[in-house]
Simulated assay, not measured.
Amino acid sequence: MSSNKPTSLPVQRPSPPPYVEVGRWAKLWADIKRNRVSYYLLAPFLLLFTFFTILPILTSIGLSFTYYNIIEAPRFVGLSNYRLLFVDDDIFLKAVGITLKFAFVTGPIGYIMAFLLAWAISQIPQKYRFFYTLCFYTPSITSAVAMSVVWLYLFAGDRKGLFNHWLIELGILDEPYLFLQNVDSIVPVIIIVSLWMSMGIGFLAFLAGLQNVPKELYEAGAIDGVRYRWQELVYITLPAVKPQLLFGAVMQVVFSLQVFDVSMQLVGMPSPLYAGHTILAHLYDYAFIRFEMGYASAIAVVLFFLMLGLNRLIFRFLGGD
């Protein structure tokens, strides 16, 4: 006799919805909606940054592919400006070499000097720090024109020049040396003056970071066996001010690659045999003397990517956790 019980069927479970990968832009939009108040507060800066930084960069990149002399409308010439820049413009290649030489000397030396001076000032009593900070920071906010008056007197190529006077009095020289006309001494002079003026924003950032290192870290280090100042510097201070170290390195690279005013005020424009000619001086020459804005834009683009590449290298070394 057959059973009348219904046979049980397998339960049909609803299939899960297909997995949809959320794109990067969707995540960004969701983050903007979630933190919209913060983005409202950032909006003024973002607008100014877009109009005065991003748009000029994009405009320069676009003009670098044109011939533009301000009077006529820009005319597209393709890669002609870059071909002329890297193949036929010997002065530009010389300017690149001088700029890199200047950057690789003043960059590390100025960076180390700024940190060591800031560290030394942070070790002295609080009531004296303002005086020493003012003494070292003042040259960086003084215009190159004003500073050149002092340095032109020091490096003057006659007996009235202070260095020549001292060297002749000491019997080291028999006749005045032309510091600002000799091609072998122009770059060293510019480096010396630039180092004197390099205690700028990075120096203040170092000083602020050093003064905000918690004292509890030094007390804990003393318990763990740290006894000397250099041990505190290596094991406690440097890790604690790593953000300031990164910021100071970026600012030092920007300062080193943008040297121009010091060179122009000391050795003129152009310098003797282009011995002090930098990338920014070459840019100024074509933009504001020859009014070849398309070619000047190509120079600016090269300088921008050179600066960007060096900054990325710095972030690789100092930006990690």
Rank of each mutant, 00 (worst) to 15 (best):
I223H: 01
S2T: 13
E292P: 05
Y235K: 12
I71Q: 10
I32Y: 11
M1N: 08
T278Y: 11
M293S: 08
I32H: 02
A103N: 08
P272T: 01
N182L: 02
T50R: 02
R227F: 12
S122R: 10
W25V: 14
W29M: 09
V250M: 08
M251T: 12
N4Q: 07
L170C: 13
A249V: 07
N81V: 12
L318Q: 07
L9Q: 14
S2N: 14
Q252P: 01
V189Q: 00
Y19C: 09
A287P: 07
G268F: 02
R227S: 15
F92Q: 07
Y137C: 03
L273T: 12
G78S: 06
G202L: 03
S38Q: 11
F104E: 04
L116V: 14
A43C: 13
F92S: 06
D261Y: 01
M113K: 03
G157I: 01
V259A: 07
R312Y: 13
F291D: 02
Y274C: 09
E169Y: 08
S143M: 09
F305I: 13
I201L: 07
I201R: 09
M307N: 15
T106E: 00
Q265C: 05
L306V: 14
A298M: 06
A249P: 11
P74L: 10
G221E: 04
Y82E: 09
A156H: 05
A30F: 10
A118D: 09
V302M: 04
W196P: 00
E216V: 07
F317P: 08
D158T: 06
I124E: 07
A249D: 03
V301S: 03
Y274K: 13
E216G: 03
K94W: 12
Y228E: 09
V253T: 14
Y235S: 12
S140M: 04
I121Q: 03
W166G: 01
F203Y: 12
Y39Q: 02
P176T: 04
N212Y: 09
F104P: 08
R129V: 11
V253H: 02
Q265A: 11
Y286F: 15
D89L: 10
T66D: 06
G276D: 05
K33Q: 15
G200H: 04
N164R: 04
I236H: 00
N212C: 08
G107P: 05
I121C: 04
A298T: 12
G157V: 05
L238I: 12
Y82T: 06
